Simulated scan of single mutants.
Amino acid sequence: MRAFGINQARAAILRYLAQDTGEGCTSGQIARDLKLGSMTAFRHLTELESLGIVVTDGEEGPRSGLRLLYRLNKERLAEEFANLGRYLNGE
């Protein structure tokens, strides 16, 4: 992962969500299980959500007080892997 400059926390979050077989995970659960700061986990989840790689059960708009469940969008992640592979191959 270091060869590509991949953020370890972000990679751990993606791996964690890929292994989830339930209905998703809260940011607090992810932070606790991965031993990350809550704001660190939330920041990465928010960025991954904006890229479409992570989805939530929440609606657009203010989220104050909501308990969001995060899930991996495996199709979108596969697209990004394919894009990276094409880029690294000079395409």
Rank of each mutant, 00 (worst) to 15 (best):
A3V: 09
A3T: 12
I6V: 13
I6Y: 11
I6Q: 13
I6K: 10
N7W: 07
A9K: 13
A9R: 13
R10C: 05
R10Y: 02
R10T: 11
R10E: 14
A12P: 06
I13W: 04
Y16F: 03
Y16S: 02
A18K: 07
A18Q: 07
A18T: 08
Q19Y: 05
D20H: 03
D20P: 00
T21M: 06
E23C: 07
G24Y: 02
C25H: 10
G28P: 14
Q29G: 13
Q29L: 10
A31E: 04
A31L: 01
A31T: 02
R32E: 12
R32W: 09
R32L: 11
R32K: 11
D33M: 02
D33P: 01
L34N: 04
L34R: 02
K35S: 09
L36G: 06
L36T: 08
L36P: 06
G37L: 02
S38Q: 13
M39W: 11
M39C: 08
M39R: 15
T40V: 10
F42G: 09
F42P: 07
H44C: 07
H44R: 10
H44G: 08
T46V: 08
T46P: 09
E47S: 09
E47V: 07
S50D: 01
S50P: 04
S50V: 04
L51V: 04
G52F: 02
G52P: 00
V54G: 00
V54A: 02
T56H: 01
D57T: 03
D57G: 00
D57V: 03
D57I: 05
D57F: 01
G58L: 05
E60R: 15
E60C: 10
E60P: 15
G61A: 06
G61V: 03
P62D: 15
S64T: 15
S64N: 14
S64G: 13
S64E: 14
G65A: 05
L66V: 15
R67W: 05
L68R: 02
L69F: 10
L69I: 05
R71A: 01
L72R: 05
K74Y: 06
K74S: 12
R76H: 02
R76V: 05
L77T: 03
A78I: 09
A78K: 05
E79V: 12
E79K: 13
E80Q: 13
F81L: 10
A82D: 08
A82H: 09
A82C: 01
A82F: 06
A82N: 08
L84W: 06
L84H: 08
G85S: 14
G85P: 00
G85H: 15
Y87D: 14
Y87V: 07
L88Y: 04
L88F: 04
N89P: 00
E91F: 10
